[in-house]
């Protein structure tokens, strides 16, 4: 078990008023992402708990790219990971942003 925390800044505050959303599932090859609007508008953060240790550099690269592309200002993402591939991680993070923009 390994915990990874990555903080960043974002170009914008994610629009919408929803306070939280959850997507994905904590299972082998998958991950669940809990998104909460608890950060200052231009800051963001991802906390990862993963069953697969030793991939910290890849996690940081994926998350920093997501901060740049997804501009998830104001959001904290908490992840329970069951060994998802990087593309799945990016997909779930982007789904999380979309849910925060679209749900009430």
């Amino acid at each position: 078990m390994e915990k990874i925390e990555v903080r960043g800044t974002a170009k914008r505050r994610v629009p919408g008023t929803s306070l939280r959303a959850i997507t994905g599932v904590s299972a082998s090859g998958n991950l669940e992402v809990l998104v909460e609007r608890v950060m200052p508008d231009r800051e963001c953060m991802v906390e990862v708990t993963t069953a697969v240790a030793g991939f910290g550099d890849i996690w940081r690269a994926v998350i920093e790219e997501f901060f740049e592309r997804g501009a998830p200002g104001g959001l904290r993402f908490s992840i329970n990971d069951g060994g998802a591939r990087p593309d799945t991680v990016t997909l779930r993070l982007m789904q999380g942003v979309r849910l925060m923009e679209t749900t009430k």
């Binding site: 078990m1 959850i22 669940e32 809990l34 908490s78 329970n80 990971d81």
Partner: peptide, 11 residues
């Protein structure tokens, strides 16, 4: 679950 090196779920 953590003592078995298993990731939990938030719910």
């Amino acid at each position: 679950l953590a003592q078995f090196d298993l990731t939990g779920a938030f719910d």
